[in-house]
Design a protein around this nucleic acid. Structure first.
Length: 564
DNA sequence: AGGCTTCTGCCTAATAACGGGACCGTTAT
């Protein structure tokens, strides 16, 4: 079996974490992360590279030292430096790095001063109020950590759904290619489109257990059976993902798929009061639901009971699909922290069949991103104009993602914002404001006549950064009054608006804008992730701004300005 | 540690907020 690039890359990422904790210089750690990222994106298998006699150092970011670690792993499956440090560094310390407010230095302090060696220790110390005993930790630091810990715990041990997707697709392909397999479909929280997945459940229709078993063991990404119980067909992939394959005879596929899609809470509510002593065996979900005379909701609506009640009252919704989107109104280019030019972004969008896109680079407040200063805007707009002429067949709109500063003012003069087609307001700093301050901050931006929608409104990052303490009821009122809209950001780490806020927006008739926030052409394909989230939020195509043709979309976008 | 050039030595995403001790390290965006 050949080691995959992903496996090599993730080992380097893990090694970088270990090095950081053990106090290696930041630049060195960074070098390992850069190399890992390059390998992740490398078009060819590294294993092939060495087989054909080419040096690993031809990869950007890989020098002698990292190449020798990689070579060792390719040869005998182990990376010496990694194994070494892994034995030295307490395992739990790595997990602590993903808590916001804790870097390597602070983690070391916690370990030496308070004996904290993992998340559970951290939680205990926090609850006992002991954290402030360590140097560099104040009640304020505690607050920060407490909030981050809360978000972390909600997704602990789970993987971003977007990272599971390639594995899920590959498994479907692998299994459906087997002569004895008629269907292979991912179920569970993956199918329900949740932000993160714990175990990837696969429902497979086949009478040949032996065949499936053999195929899994021979699979490139197979690492080993979990729990030493091959009968459950539960295994680990080489990137540490838990997979459970549920094998059923084709005649019971629908029944099993429905059951394994869940959620438990949904299934309980669905069959409540029903006499289901014996489950009907059905080939498809539709047949299964029909046999029991129960509604067959789209999987994205099966995570709770809320949608079930709504569907029972107002009927089955027609949820949005990817093909409904006609334009992407939030993306970055080489003018700030994007990796591709305006023209490249536009060509890619055109290939994907979009009718329009907006280039919306950062403003100066976002320093790391090289945010634009007002005096740079004329050149920026010219570049967009030029690209617009050079890429026929799609319309490129001029926009900016303007920072909402701490006091609610916008990070760009009105005269400049007035020249744009798309003005997005977004928060990238001062995430720790109290509820009143941050709510008023966003309200102020929404009241601004030139701000058309708010990007990633809650500011949460899945599993690491808690949402801003926003009072959404007040934001909805402002949206209704001013015509300001909310974005559903399709970046897999954001997925923000959250589902419950999508529902509310829909009820109040506030259009949602679904955008990728792409920083590279490949990320333009993230639209689907946003759509999954929108479907969980029960949005139909008509609830979304950018499903409209350009003129209708622009009209809604301009509504605020015309009101002035 | 790697990349680039100066082929030995310098820079690595720029800057603000915070906390401890009055300038500097840590962390985040």
């Amino acid at each position: 079996m050949q080691i995959s690039n992903a496996n090599l890359a993730y080992t380097l990422f893990r090694l970088a974490n270990l090095m950081e904790i053990s106090g290696e210089p930041g630049a060195k750690v960074q070098a390992y992360r850069t190399a890992a990222q390059q390998i992740l994106e490398y078009p060819e298998k590294l294993a092939n590279l060495t087989l054909t006699g080419r040096a690993l150092t031809t990869i950007k970011g890989v020098g002698e030292s990292i190449a020798s670690q990689l070579q060792a792993m390719l040869t005998d499956g182990h990376m010496p430096r990694y194994e070494e440090l892994k034995a030295e560094v307490p395992e739990g310390l790595i997990e602590l790095l993903s808590i916001r407010g804790l870097g390597a230095a602070k983690v070391r302090t916690l370990h030496t001063a308070l004996g904290i060696a993992g998340i559970d220790d951290l939680r205990e110390a926090l609850e006992a109020g002991r954290l402030r005993e360590a140097k560099g930790f104040t009640p304020r630091t505690e607050d920060r950590i407490r909030r981050s810990l809360y978000e972390f715990s909600a997704h602990r041990g789970r993987t971003l759904r977007a990272l599971v997707e390639p594995t899920a697709m590959a498994l479907v392909e692998l299994l459906e290619a087997l002569p004895g397999v008629t269907r292979a479909v991912p179920a569970g929280s993956y199918r329900r489109g949740l932000e993160t997945v714990g175990t990837l459940d696969m429902v497979v229709a086949s009478d040949s257990r032996e065949e499936v078993h053999r195929a899994l063991v021979a699979w490139d990404f197979f690492f080993g059976w979990s729990d030493g119980q091959p009968d459950t067909m539960a295994f680990l992939t080489d990137s540490d993902l838990h997979v459970a394959v549920h094998l059923v005879p084709p005649g019971a596929f629908g029944t099993e798929l429905h059951r394994r899609t869940g959620s438990a809470e949904y299934l309980a509510a669905l069959t409540e009061g029903l006499d289901v002593l014996e489950e009907p065996l059905a080939e498809s979900e539709e047949q299964y639901c029909a046999a029991l005379a129960i509604p067959c909701l789209p999987p994205e609506l099966r995570s709770g009971v809320e949608s079930l009640n709504e569907v029972r009252i107002s009927g089955m919704p027609e949820l949005i699909v990817v093909g409904d989107i006609r334009g992407d109104l939030h993306m970055h280019t080489t003018h700030t922290d994007g990796r591709n030019t305006v023209e490249e972004m536009a060509r890619f969008c055109r290939e994907r069949g979009l009718e329009y896109l907006a280039i919306t680079d950062h403003t100066r407040n976002v320093r790391v991103a090289g945010g634009l200063f007002p005096e740079e805007i004329p050149g920026y707009l010219e570049a967009i104009e030029l690209a617009n002429q050079r890429v026929p067949g799609i319309t490129i709109l001029k926009g900016l993602e303007v920072d909402i500063l701490a006091d609610g003012s916008m990070d760009m003069p009105d005269e400049i914002m007035a020249q744009l087609d798309v003005v997005i307001g977004a928060i990238h700093s001062h995430f720790d404001q109290d509820s009143e301050a941050v709510t008023r901050r966003v309200l102020t931006a929404m009241e601004h006549p030139l701000v058309q929608f708010i990007a990633h409104p809650s500011g949460r990052l899945v599993g690491s950064r808690s949402p801003l303490l926003l009072d959404f009821d007040r934001l909805y009122s402002a949206a209704e009054r001013t015509g300001t809209m909310f974005e559903l950001n399709a970046n897999p780490e954001r997925l923000d608006l959250h589902d419950q806020h999508c529902r509310r927006a829909r009820q109040l008739n506030i259009p949602v804008v679904i955008n990728t926030d792409a920083h590279a052409v490949q990320q333009l394909d993230n639209l689907g992730k946003g759509i999954s989230q929108a479907r969980r939020g029960m949005l139909a195509a008509t609830d979304v701004l950018n499903t409209r043709p350009l003129p209708a979309m622009l009209e809604l976008l301009q509504r605020k300005r015309n009101q002035q």
